[in-house]
Design a protein around this nucleic acid. Structure first.
Lengths: 137, 137
DNA sequence: AAATATAGTTAGAAAATACTAACTAAAAGA
DNA sequence: TCTTTTAGTTAGTATTTTCTAACTATATTT
């Protein structure tokens, strides 16, 4: 089904565009691409420790440690010492660090709005049902 | 319509995941995040000159120049001198540079497949029609 | 209990990414 | 034609991002 791939490509482009626009809007905080990737990955993983984060990012632990130290200084991230394993600490996003998620939420809201603007109520409900079906495991 | 935003968020996550997986597959070429962003932007813009690329990336011209020089050395990009304006040169992706697009195509194909696997023929056609409607200007 | 493994850190260094200021050459405007 | 603007470059430098090797402290295995 050739057509579907083209549609997915367009959809992907629009979503990327919306995310980029949201990044511009929220980019008061002067974060580099790399830094945003760290925060996104921390959010995605829950509250990983440095070793887990390094594995997912495919970077060495000292590299990740250096970056996280800077985040802690800038109050984007804080550490919580683990009870089970006293060597380890979990990384948490501060409210400032969670700005990244708000940015994504904003982009998703805009995308959802463009769906709503282009479809009538019945079509929208059909779309929701079908997407739910696709996204269900 | 609260539900739609959640669905968009999930859809976005899945698309990002697929793109990341594709990046892993194709990442023989050892490109950094930043470097991929350059190649994607060159593709997106057509064949920009250095000034245009710098403006879009919001970086200084010398910064972009240095990076492009490395790409030229590694044969991901080549320059074509402009006929209209002899000061200027257009940036083109080599076959190697176009790997980035193949990577995206691969991700889109996988996403399209997951749509096809979850929906029957009739549902799929409905989805295509609705997405077309959403994506039309 | 001793040996090994794991989580995180420190130190030192290299490469990648970014900047400003000053330049050349071509184009555009007065 | 003279001046100004624009595209790209060069030089010098700062910051960010990354690495390996060696270390401490805690946890796990034998």
């Amino acid at each position: 089904m050739k057509n579907m791939e083209e549609i997915v490509a367009k959809l992907s482009n629009i979503m990327v565009q919306m995310e980029d626009a949201a990044k511009d809007q929220f980019n008061l905080s002067n974060l580099t691409h790399t830094q945003m990737n760290y925060l996104e990955t921390i959010h995605m993983l829950g509250n990983p420790n440095i070793t887990e984060l390094a594995n997912i990012l495919k970077l060495s632990k000292p590299t990740v440690k250096v970056t996280i130290d800077k985040f802690i200084e800038k109050e984007f991230v804080y550490k919580v010492q683990s009870d089970e394993d006293r060597r380890s600490a979990h990384l948490h996003l501060t409210e400032k660090g969670k700005l990244i998620n708000q940015m994504h939420d904003f982009a998703h809201k805009r995308i959802a709005e463009s769906f709503k603007n282009k479809l009538n109520d019945h079509e929208l409900q059909t779309m929701i049902d079908l997407l739910n079906k696709v996204l269900s495991k």
